[in-house]
Design a protein around this nucleic acid. Structure first.
Lengths: 344, 344
DNA sequence: ATTAGCACTCGAACAGCTTGAGTGCTAAAA
DNA sequence: TTTTAGCACTCAAGCTGTTCGAGTGCTAAT
């Protein structure tokens, strides 16, 4: 029993009807939708077959059919078609969002998440862009208080992070530049996994007697190094998750997931080059029934890429959301690489 | 009809019983709690009086009484007593949370919010500390890419923020230091409201012909200046809000509130020196019934202070939460000012 | 001022009933 | 062999009526 053409069309119709109404689709409604091409009885037979294949399910015996996660998987993988087109009004709205946004990657990521979330009325997740092999191109150490120093790292990709270190003694200008030299000598362009205790010892030793008391600075630098490999993650529009009753049972799990940096990172690390659709039912540890994550990398130039994702129920209007997300991610990438959008 | 001693005791008893069970308190349950000192009939009369005073309400005619927001207000203002004591196990748990936390204020604020939220099982909100009159003590400009410069601001309080500016031309080392000099000359220790178009023009003019193309750098600096007056706000433990059925109707409004930086800032800007209790029903624009925010400033030394708040239902166990919050805020302040906690 | 007693209210829980959407199966038609 | 009309069946949703009990307000006695 394979997926012949008619079965595919039926699945598509059910996905589409269920997306708009949110109610199980019965054979009658479906036959009206098919406009009398076949009778409801035939549709019933087909639907039974699709149910046996695991692509549809019934909430209860006398209810209509609803696509399963597997059904949606089949739908997005085989039926959605590669090139969805973006309608003019959406394109214009997205263009408008990018007017007057800031260049700074962190700010941009956050405001992009907020803006897209507001536009779509879905929750949106954006990570800041990262290079494939993140490392730090340049360190600076600045005195910022009597006993505090700021350690500043410029990544190979040009973004900047700082961290404040607290010292036991009053830092002088020469100390600061000496520490910066040391950091630059030993940690420039070093990838995080290559840092080991030997390297750390060498660094401390190279500072001579000042080594141990400089430890907070080194430690801050090492923390920065470990951080440049981790993007910031902005999740905006929590409130939109509440509007989908089918997400309610898993809402708590979902919010815990969102609160846990590691797990979110793991989810998004499917770094493909295409738009990905991931269903909550397919999650490795704790499945979240009914959830769907449409994610897509964006490229900010210079090998930098981040992820942008829309979170909502599995019955999302993919035909609209996907091209919108794709166009948005393109503009976001351009914005981040400093180009101006088409409107400017 | 005033609040005599017995009415106060009755209100306290109702608050306490309702906090533990979450169910309306009837006269019988209450008389058992009072251990036969008075009969349920007397209690009924008193409860009717408290209802007339607006301190209690009934979900429906034949249900028990529940404190109103006004009732809780009376309770926390008049009955809670000034000095609540922290029990040993809680103190130890909080001490433990501060082991091994980072010094960096941003990171510390976020991890503090997460930690306290996990400990209490309530949502927690932490702002980074701010001086009363925030200004920037020192600017630096660094070249971080061919066409990008990082503008770095050290606040009077010693925290550091950066922002990346995109330029039209290749920045040299001399340009960078010239820009930094200009920023330092005109914007050092200037408070944001004192920046006007005259000052900006003076700055641009002082750079001569290089003025206009340096605009992105100046703009970044001005943005930083406006940002040092705004704390970062970390809200953690969204998921715990879901467990209180009485919050459900306002959950969406609440999450929108949390997503809106300005409104949260306005709420927390009641910058008193004491612990404040604010009820959702008392909110100016959109009341959120059943919500309660217990907030408290923490002091990080050097005139820096931030806010830490617990968000939950009005029927929180204040007697535990408040001392825990107070102790936590003390430790957080100490941690931020660089001191080590008692355990270290 | 307090309290016992009592009539009253009203939600929660349950059972019984109807309705209608939707099913699977069967047998006839194409 | 495929399609379809017809039919018996299922089951959630919605409505009604009933009971139960917790809780109330009021009144009259203490």
């Amino acid at each position: 029993m394979a997926m012949d053409d008619r079965k595919q069309r039926i699945l598509m119709a059910i996905v589409s009807l269920y997306a708009t109404d949110g109610e199980p689709v019965g054979s009658n409604l479906l036959s009206r939708y098919f406009d009398m091409a076949v009778s409801s009885a035939t549709l019933r037979n087909e639907m039974a077959a699709l149910t046996k294949l695991g692509l549809l399910e019934q909430p209860h015996t006398s209810a209509g059919r609803v696509p399963t996660a597997k059904g949606y998987r089949y739908y997005v993988d085989n039926l959605l078609g590669g090139h969805l087109s973006l309608n003019r009004p959406s394109r214009d709205k997205i263009d408008a969002l990018f007017q007057g946004l800031d260049y700074d990657p962190e700010k941009l990521a956050q405001s992009a998440a907020k803006a897209l979330s507001g536009l779509l009325s879905y929750a949106v997740l954006v990570t800041t862009p990262l290079a494939q092999n993140p490392s730090i191109a340049h360190f600076e150490v600045l005195q910022v208080g009597r006993y505090t120093a700021a350690v500043l790292a410029v990544t190979a990709a040009g973004s900047v992070r700082t961290r404040v270190a607290k010292l036991d003694f009053e830092l002088g200008r020469e100390d600061a530049s000496r520490y910066a030299d040391t950091l630059n000598r030993y940690l420039r362009f070093v990838a995080e996994p290559d840092v080991n205790s030997g390297l750390i010892r060498t660094m401390v030793d190279s500072l001579g007697s000042a080594g141990p008391r400089a430890w907070p600075v080194l430690s801050a630098a090492l923390t920065l190094l470990s951080e440049v490999g981790r993007p910031s993650i902005y999740f905006e529009g929590h409130q939109y998750l509440l509007q989908w009753p089918e997400l309610e049972p898993g809402l708590r799990t979902l919010l815990e997931l969102v609160g846990s940096r590691e797990r979110i990172e793991a989810l998004l690390q499917v770094g493909d080059t295409r738009t990905m659709v991931l269903f909550g039912d397919e999650l490795p540890d704790k499945p979240i029934p009914g959830l769907c994550l449409v994610s897509r990398p964006y490229h900010a130039g210079g090998g930098l890429s981040g992820t942008i994702a829309v979170a909502g129920p599995a019955r999302m209007p993919y035909r609209e959301i996907i091209p919108e997300l794709e166009y948005f991610s393109e503009l976001l990438g351009r914005s981040m690489s400093g180009e101006r959008g088409p409107g400017l």
